[in-house]
Simulated assay, not measured.
Amino acid sequence: MLLAIEQGNTNSMFAVHDGTTWVAQWRSATEANRTADEYAVWLTQLFAMSGLSFEALDACIVSSVVPQSVFNLRNLSRRYLGVEPLVIGENVALGIPIRVDKPSEVGSDRIVNAIGAHAAHSGPLIVVDSGTATTIDVVAADGGFEGGAIAPGIHLSVEALHAAAAKLPRVALRRPGRVIGTDTVSAMQSGVFWGYVALIEGMIARIKAERGEPMTVVATGGIAALFYDATAAIDDFDPDVTIRGLLEIYRRNSSSRP
């Protein structure tokens, strides 16, 4: 079985694949200084609750945008799982061309998403991932990663608005029924939510115009479900893009599948 670890700036996902399907998935807040021992204690309890054990694992793959955490995640795999992990960005074959000026600077999360989206969706793609940052990336028909755009995530915008403006409160993220707010809270919620919808729509339109070809738009990430049915610019909401990409990369680098 395979343990796939995807670590973002805000949340981390741990998922187990048994060779046929994903049998368990867990999320935790990302803590850059969490040690391998702390990860092991936490995972041991979750494995037990799901009827799993470390002994059943024979592979591990890690994608992290938090460099200081990779050391501890590697030690977790070596010390407690007894396997050498595949770490995206460290001599791991991706199987796709990276057509940007500086491939080494592209975050592993964006590459994993490109591979996961291409594995399930045909044709040129635009992949919108809403997390700590909102990334809007282009995947060519052959699966090649061709760059994109990075904007602050919606939660960052909410917090920045509250922190920088003394009279503006912290508001819950929700979809307002109207664009025009009639009090401070509803006006902020409208600006944040519909402003992000407009950002996504505008960037998708500009990318399509620049590319000059039909493109399928796939949304993923924790916040994407909130936006999916608020705009016709997104063709499909696919929450499994990342773990599918991790599995695909693992299979491309292993002679035996999990």
Rank of each mutant, 00 (worst) to 15 (best):
A32K: 14
V128H: 01
L161T: 05
E213M: 15
T135H: 09
S190P: 02
T44Q: 14
F227R: 00
V65W: 00
G107C: 05
T132C: 01
V171M: 04
T35Q: 12
R252M: 13
D37K: 09
L52E: 12
L199C: 06
I111W: 02
L199M: 15
C60Y: 07
I88W: 08
A36E: 12
L246D: 09
Q7I: 02
E6Y: 13
S69F: 03
A219R: 00
T135P: 02
G222K: 00
R170H: 14
V171G: 04
R78M: 09
Y196G: 04
A160I: 07
P239M: 10
E210Y: 05
W22K: 07
P67A: 12
A114L: 11
S108K: 02
G153R: 00
A151K: 01
S186R: 04
V217M: 00
D109T: 08
I243M: 12
G181V: 07
V62T: 04
T220R: 03
I207N: 02
A224P: 05
T21N: 11
A149I: 13
G202Q: 02
V112F: 06
A141E: 15
I88N: 03
V70Y: 06
A225R: 11
S157I: 00
K208M: 12
V192K: 00
Q7P: 01
D137P: 02
R251L: 13
G8N: 02
H121M: 05
H121N: 09
P85N: 09
P85I: 01
S69K: 01
P152E: 08
A224W: 03
W42F: 13
I111N: 05
I249N: 11
H162W: 10
A209G: 07
A166P: 07
G181W: 07
